[in-house]
Design a protein around this nucleic acid. Sequence first.
DNA 1: ATCATATACTTAGCGTAGCTAACTAACTAT
DNA 2: ATAGTTAGTTAGCTACGCTAAGTATATGAT
Lengths: 159, 159
Amino acid sequence: MHSAAIHLLRRLRKQDDATGVTPARLSALSVVVFGGPKTIGQLASAEQVSAPTMTRLVVGMQRDGLVKRERDANDARLIWIRATPKGDRILREGRRRRVAELARDLSALSDAEVEHLTRATEIIERITGRAASASLGATPLPEGASRDASRDRARRRTR
Amino acid sequence: MHSAAIHLLRRLRKQDDATGVTPARLSALSVVVFGGPKTIGQLASAEQVSAPTMTRLVVGMQRDGLVKRERDANDARLIWIRATPKGDRILREGRRRRVAELARDLSALSDAEVEHLTRATEIIERITGRAASASLGATPLPEGASRDASRDRARRRTR
DNA sequence: ATCATATACTTAGCGTAGCTAACTAACTAT
DNA sequence: ATAGTTAGTTAGCTACGCTAAGTATATGAT
């Protein structure tokens, strides 16, 4: 099962390579494309990555013209990251390829087999303690993109 | 499904962190622990990584006392990598933890659910074009460890 | 109003991991 | 002998994770 999971992800990742955007940046980009503008801290939290790491990912995405920074009117510390049209286009095209790849895989299966995969997905989601948000047809990339709109200001770990 | 695969792997990887060995090294180590001594080239091929990358992984493992190098008697270009007792112990302990984690997860499931997972695993393995080597109970790490036993002997001639 | 603290982000620096290009040493074949 | 091939290493690049420490801003208590 472990092996299967690795191979599945490796297969899908190949579609992402075609975007020319590295995986970490692509994942962060997906958050702002599907979830709207986010601050650096929100992005770091959503991607479960430290703030400095997210700063650098944003620098890279900005250099490639995928996102732009916007100052907050009320709090000068905040920086809002918004996807540019280019960033939006690149991510959606990549996602389309990815979904197409998966659909091609699944089309070769019988209904019963798809049913098995659906059930297995639900079971694994339950094990890992996540809301089973994504069935087979749902959006693959933006995990944790939309949550925490309220909780964002609540806590930040500085250690 | 994609999300489920990511979360499953993330969960299992936490057990690997406890070994104190980085993932790439741990994976390479598993090849020599379960598959016996391998040359750098064989390891690079098994891990689907370039030769320079494997050279560096081996350097790291050697520095940590996980493996040792051995010269080949017949071909001075070859370097055989063998796991040390320490490397063997660390890998097996990590594997034990990992399997225990998975077993703990699975023990909470009904027989029918385990059956679903087994079928799903087989289906995914078929999609990704691999031999469905690992069922739920089988060894998780060493993919591609044992192949090419025949080719090893193909070269190597008696001067 | 001031001062201490907390927050948001950046900078600096380290380790790991992937790559290609170019190199050395050794083996193979002609 | 020599030309080509193979195994491994070295050098140098990008990327991505981290912590520690720094700057700027906001907030709360006195």
